[in-house]
Design a protein around this nucleic acid. Structure first.
Lengths: 138, 138
DNA sequence: TTGTGTGCAAAAATTTTGCAGGTCA
DNA sequence: TGACCTGCAAAATTTTTGCACACAA
């Protein structure tokens, strides 16, 4: 991995990166990552997990997200899609799913014209009832 | 105020509500609210501020927002606009401004069709460079 | 070797909670 | 009066930090 931006490649950093890859569609908190590490026999100090994820964020490897549950979560920045971050949060069961649709471009364009604000990224959360919960109601 | 939803009207709750009104365009944390109260001679326990803002959120009086600075913030739910929550966050100076545009409706419609997810609210943050910082660069 | 990185434990920061007493309806 | 509210301080949670030691380059 390209830690050749002036940072060293260490076992801890590689391990944490692995975990992020293996849980691509999760939104892990530092605590979560640390628990997974513990389960896999290895052991890394929780402080290192915090420091590493902060570093990864600075380097653009992960994004920070917050679902108002009291902890900061991170997700891999899969630069395949350009910028993104659309989450559907079910207010009934709490499930979080991702959406790929990127219709915010027109909105961003409008913001740029109306407000003179140059958008470089966004983070959108939609609250509502997911398909499963909706079906259950019937 | 309509605390007649089964909750009592107390001095503390009214005072906190006043502060929210007087700072309509701010995004206050519990700490912020508590500091403002202290400045205005009055004194309310910080625990009460936390409990009151949680109550207000449950009652739909305020919205919870999070700008990844480690604290939960609240803003008045001005039901004038339907649902909303668009914030422009300048990555240079940190300033947060509101946008009124509501172009997310078409996106919500699409989400409903594609994912079967019924959207009831959203929260969108746009990161970028604000007008002032952009001008400064030149 | 040498500057970075790590682990530990202590500290900080934010939020929650138990309980005794106070207040509103 | 009686249930609800508040204040305080203690506790719980999450995150940060200092420092001695370890390790990658």
């Amino acid at each position: 991995m390209l830690q050749q931006k002036g940072y060293k490649s260490t076992n801890q950093r590689e391990e944490i990166l692995n975990i992020l890859f293996e849980n691509k569609n999760e939104h892990l908190s530092c605590e979560d990552v640390h628990k997974i590490i513990s389960k896999e026999k290895k052991d890394i100090g929780i402080a290192t997990v915090y420091r590493t994820l902060q570093l990864f964020e600075k380097l653009g490897i992960v994004y920070k997200i917050n679902f108002d549950d009291g902890v900061t979560r991170y997700e891999l920045n899969t630069e395949a899609e350009n910028h993104h971050h659309h989450h559907l949060i079910c207010t009934q069961c709490g499930k979080v799913t991702e959406v790929k649709l990127d219709l915010l471009e027109s909105l961003e364009h409008e913001i740029e014209i109306e407000e003179g604000f140059v958008v470089s990224d966004h983070d959108a959360k939609f609250y509502g009832i997911c398909k499963e919960c909706k079906n259950k109601e019937k």
